[in-house]
Design a protein around this nucleic acid. Sequence first.
DNA 1: TTTGTATTACCTGATATCAGGTAAAAAGAG
DNA 2: CTCTTTTTACCTGATATCAGGTAATACAAA
Lengths: 211, 211
Amino acid sequence: MDKVYKTVIVDDHPIVISGISGLLSDLETVEIVGKLESGVKLVDYIEENQVDLILMDIFLPVINGVDLCKTVKQKYPRIIIIGMSSQSERSLVMQFIQNGGNGYVLKSASFDEFKRCINKAIEGEIVFSDEVKTIISQPSSDGLDHIPSLSRREKDITLLLSKGKSTQEIADELFLSFLTVQTHRRNILQKYKTKNVAELMAFLLKNNLLS
Amino acid sequence: MDKVYKTVIVDDHPIVISGISGLLSDLETVEIVGKLESGVKLVDYIEENQVDLILMDIFLPVINGVDLCKTVKQKYPRIIIIGMSSQSERSLVMQFIQNGGNGYVLKSASFDEFKRCINKAIEGEIVFSDEVKTIISQPSSDGLDHIPSLSRREKDITLLLSKGKSTQEIADELFLSFLTVQTHRRNILQKYKTKNVAELMAFLLKNNLLS
DNA sequence: TTTGTATTACCTGATATCAGGTAAAAAGAG
DNA sequence: CTCTTTTTACCTGATATCAGGTAATACAAA
């Protein structure tokens, strides 16, 4: 009954890993078997080792936490995954859960809260730290519960938009018609229900969809 | 000669504080006397206690790290202050140093790098972790070495811009003339040498000047 | 008290964006 | 091989933005 959960921590900040390790050493039900700093290493690791629980940062270099969670869950649906981040947007948390995440904790959570969440997650519950609860309980201001993703071309264009380029400049740079870029712009705005590029940029950056 | 530096850690993430504490316990020259989660508490603390070294997160709730550093240094110029953050923009680091910071370390730095930076800072040097060095050594792409700050009104307007409001809507909301808002917009764009609101938003959010 | 910055406000013309359509290739998934 | 999504492209009209001016009032610092 008192199974020991083989646990992996994924975070690109050594300090955070060390902090979490310390906290987890208090828990008898978990055993840290891996400390990794990237999603790629996680994917490699779980191929070769048994893992029951993953604590992962959402903002990781190269692969973001949401996609990483999805990938892992597709192959290993029984692994419990808890997401973490410093600040968070409602929609990001929702997206994480929709992709199979078993819980979401803000790094500003206290030690006790952290422990509570991990224990509950092990018992099969979907858990959130207090601040996350506040965030997700308030009705979505943007009307988006799952974030649509951008296509390759759309990403190109948003990136150039963030650099202050006009429709014409983007068209020139990507060797497209002015009108094509205009269509893309419209689609992107529509996708996120934003009124103009200013709001779009704010949304994209807050949800880490750019860069 | 082997003075022991009374050190305070300021970070709103308990986990990070714990991680840093662990790392600092290896160093004989520093002694942790305080673990604080906000700038307000830091200001209170140094009023009443002796402090030689501060390790502070740059992204703190309420007061940001740059302003906090400036405030502390004005009153206590002899305290050594090292800034930390997860990701970082060149201009943010520059601004921190210009406001009296003695060093800047990314949280992705290794333990050894962290220790090296702290030791060097104690010796009076201005220190940067490796990744930060890379960031600041490349010429400023935006041509801004110190970030101009926004006035109260300008902040109001940028906030509304980020919500997708048009000039007219902002004017209505703030009981201003359409033309006044137009002037503010122009000044803001000029301040950051941005061509349009899209670029402005990207800049502001990357440098944490919004919200 | 003077200097500087912030805030307010007006005028104009060129250019850009946004919103409403439609639609045909091309690429990728099943 | 079919179905779906993506990428490409065009048209139009209403609105909004941007860039160039100028300038008075207000407030805080030197």
